[in-house]
Amino acid sequence: MSKTAIIIGGGTAGMETASQLARLGVEVDLIEKQPHLGGHLKNWDRLFPNRRNSDEVFDYLEKGMNDGISLHLNAEISNIRKSEEKFTIALQDGKELQSDALVIATGYEVFDARKKEEYGYGIYDNVITSVELEEFFRSNKQKNLLEGVASKRIGIIHCVGSRDEKAGNLYCSKLCCVTGVKQAIEIKELMPDAEIFCFYMDLRMFDRHFEEMYYEAQEKWGIQFIRGRLSEASENTDHTLLVKVEDTLTGLPLKMKVDLLILLVGFVPSPETRRLAAMLGLKEGDDRFLCPADEHTITNSTEIPGVFLAGTVKGPAGIANTITDARATAIQVADYLK
């Protein structure tokens, strides 16, 4: 009789882990609380650094959803029990699933920008998040982002909810920098006469081709990068925004008017990740992401035998790294099930 694994979370990490495990002959139950697979990938329009359509990556992941994988969509977990090497998961619809191994791939959610009250998200009309901008790109590609606005000056704020002690998140979300650069270029493609200002603390262009994108943004598109953190945004009578920033390279305070403010929201562990961690007794780090058994050498297993981690439950990661991590998890699970 073949061995079984339950994967919780049908985003990039969960889909790829499921696909690889099925390929290795493991029977997989993939549980997703949404009515569809894909997680956050479905919200992205194009991916950095080459700006390919995110649907292409989703199509690749979906092709892996073959025989050997039972999908459970719209499925909420009410309880997990472990007994005699077996995991039993009770779903809210009364169904029960059993397996020999469990993979937590419940990922992240974006930082709730309303917590940075001084930026006015949810209060001022023209403050949006990077996620909302992606939604706009996905659904309104032919439209101007700022219809009818003459000046079209846009501010992009980096590190919203990341590297921010006040927000309770000391960690870097890693991918907001490159997302900001990507989105700035995409806005310029849509609105060549827009003026774009990125307000950053550091630009952490850590991965391949990221630095090149940053150069392209400046040299080809004339996007301006100002080192300084936004102190506050206020609304003018015409619904434009007054932003106050300290330019830390010149050491001078800066005040300017923008038509639109885009907040690059960082990663926080999803509530489901935290709920399952509490249910299973998994260890959370200071940053509230889950801890693997060893930070360097055993990055896909946990201290609980049979419980594995995949993707952004362990911290911020991009699509490519998430897929690589999911494959590593699949190998670890298969090895454990031998």
Binding site: R114, E117, G120, Y121, G122, I123, Y124, D125, E235
Partner: peptide, 10 residues
């Protein structure tokens, strides 16, 4: 200006 946003903070 969205007053509901402020009310949520209040």
């Amino acid at each position: 200006m969205k007053i509901e946003g402020k009310q949520n903070i209040w």
